[in-house]
Design a protein around this nucleic acid. Structure first.
Lengths: 190, 190
DNA sequence: ATTATCTATAGATCTATAGATAATGC
DNA sequence: ATTATCTATAGATCTATAGATAATGC
């Protein structure tokens, strides 16, 4: 059935949103096109009117996944600029974030996937990495170089911490990692 | 052609070793059985005399990947117990480690893959995570709880740092991450 | 007339198995 | 006699395309 331009755009967004979640949950190669289309309430045949290839969807979905962190803050009525390092740490190192990779940070959910990815995916991620460092540096104390150092340390520790916490099948160990890193980051600009 | 027990064992090890490297390079789902067998100098038909399933090989290969860090230290004539935190950081956060995931730490190369993995893979990794924390804690200064905290912080930061450094397609940014984390970990027990 | 979506399928790829072959080891 | 490996292939799955259908929009 033919659809209006508006409906097509909504369909497009629905596919990207579905992919953005499922790819974070199951990895960049973990879900097939037919499965994604079905979950978006469609069939596989329509896919290539929206994307030239599966890789094109993946690139769009990664972009969307990076945007989702900010969109969620907005939905929760939080101004990112007003968050302290402690606020960021509380959110990033929460059990909720650990247990819901599909809604969370792609640097934690897709670390190894992106490093193996094509130039497009890595390019997008590199740009976001730079922005994350700058945003965190603006929250840290000290001279410019010191703030930059703190930002790099804090983000490496947060992304690594959530990654390791997700690996651990021992809940106590996993919680210890989250808590230890959270306390450290929260204290970083004190 | 039939082979002796000894030859079969060597063949088995060759397959596991090949898989251990390729899976770290391309992810737990990135390489097929036929491809791995070919690289080990064999054909696909013999595979199932060695492993009940592909998943069984993956579990063995992960185990072997975790062992490889220690085996390499041994080959280099280094006693892990005598390494300081600075020594560990120099090695872990080197450009060589970043650029050769196939020979490196599975926590950095397979972070997201293992967290999505089955109970077997996550169980093996959880055990190793505990050992890594203990080994790092033994190198840190302070009271027990403080040493433990430092170990968790240092390892989350190292695994996360190498992960982010591998993502960055900007060499300067990538090198900055490695260097910043290395300096921090090296200073942690001073 | 155009096109977004559908059903159906071609072609590639991947895991696992079947049966043949040749060397081991009781 | 047993079995490690080989060639060949069955069966499943995945990306991408072909052609039909029905609604949009000039």
């Amino acid at each position: 059935m033919g659809r209006s331009q508006l409906e097509k755009q909504k369909t497009h967004e629905k596919i990207v949103e579905t992919a953005s979640r499922r790819l974070r949950e199951e990895g960049l190669e973990g879900v097939g096109v037919a499965d994604l289309m079905k979950e978006a309430g469609l069939t596989v045949g329509g896919f290539y009117k929206h994307f030239a290839s599966r890789d094109d969807l993946v690139a769009e979905a990664i972009q969307s996944a990076f945007d989702s962190w900010g969109r969620k803050l907005e939905a929760d009525g939080i101004d990112p600029a007003k968050m302290t390092a402690a606020d960021v740490a509380d959110r990033y190192l929460s059990a909720y974030h650990r247990d819901n990779p599909g809604e969370g940070c792609p640097f934690a959910a897709l670390t190894s996937d992106i490093s193996r990815g094509d130039d497009k995916a890595r390019g997008i991620a590199t740009e976001r990495l730079r922005l994350n460092f700058e945003a965190l540096a603006s929250k840290a104390s000290g001279a410019d170089a010191e703030r930059r150092r703190k930002a790099v340390i804090a983000f490496a520790m947060m992304a690594g911490g959530v990654g390791l916490a997700r690996i651990s099948s021992d809940e106590a160990l996993s919680a210890e990692i989250l808590e230890t890193v959270r306390d450290f980051v929260a204290a970083i600009d004190k």
